[in-house]
Design a protein around this nucleic acid. Structure first.
Length: 155
DNA sequence: GCCAACGTTGGC
DNA sequence: GCCAACGTTGGC
């Protein structure tokens, strides 16, 4: 059964354009250093699951398009590299702490669906994304909410 | 195992 | 740049 997800990225760091331009339109989703987010990737994501690509820390923040899970989880080797953006000396090749999946570009929306707009729809109120203080960078999206967004808000 | 200090996220 | 919310760390 296909599941649905939302993954956040700062476009100044890695945008949906970057994913679109990547080889095979596919890229590792590296840099996640949060256990809950890691567990979603490691235990619950399946090949072909659909992902809302969310641009954070920009104007405006919001959902910009769709990607899909393109691999199973495997160790995030950037954690081993002291020169990387998010090194973690406690993660080693023999005992990796952080995992990632590959994601593949599916589509970019004609325009971003801003966070402000998502907040206006009571149908979406149960989304973890809209919970106050939420900081998860990888989170599940209910099928109901997914369909609502795709049918009512895209375009 | 508690909890204060600290760091990070991310909207504003 | 500010700050609220939250996760992590480490002393005890």
């Amino acid at each position: 059964m296909t599941r649905y997800w939302l993954m956040k990225s700062e476009p100044s760091c890695f945008s949906i354009d970057d994913l679109h331009n990547a080889p095979n339109q596919t890229s590792p989703w590296d840099g996640v250093r949060n256990y809950q987010a890691r567990n979603f990737m490691q235990k619950d994501m399946k090949l072909g699951d659909k992902i809302f690509f969310y641009h954070s820390n920009c104007k405006p923040p919001g959902i910009i398009g769709i990607a899909e899970v393109a691999s199973g989880a495997y160790p995030d080797h950037t954690a081993f590299d002291p020169e990387s953006d998010h090194p973690d000396p406690k993660s080693t090749p023999d005992n990796p702490r952080w995992f990632m999946v590959d994601v593949r570009y599916v589509e970019q929306f004609p325009k971003i669906i801003p966070l402000d707009e998502l907040k206006l729809h009571t149908e979406l109120a149960s989304m973890p994304l809209l919970r106050k203080g939420n900081r998860l960078s990888v989170m599940p999206v209910g099928e109901t909410e997914w369909q609502y967004i795709v049918k009512e808000l895209v375009g």
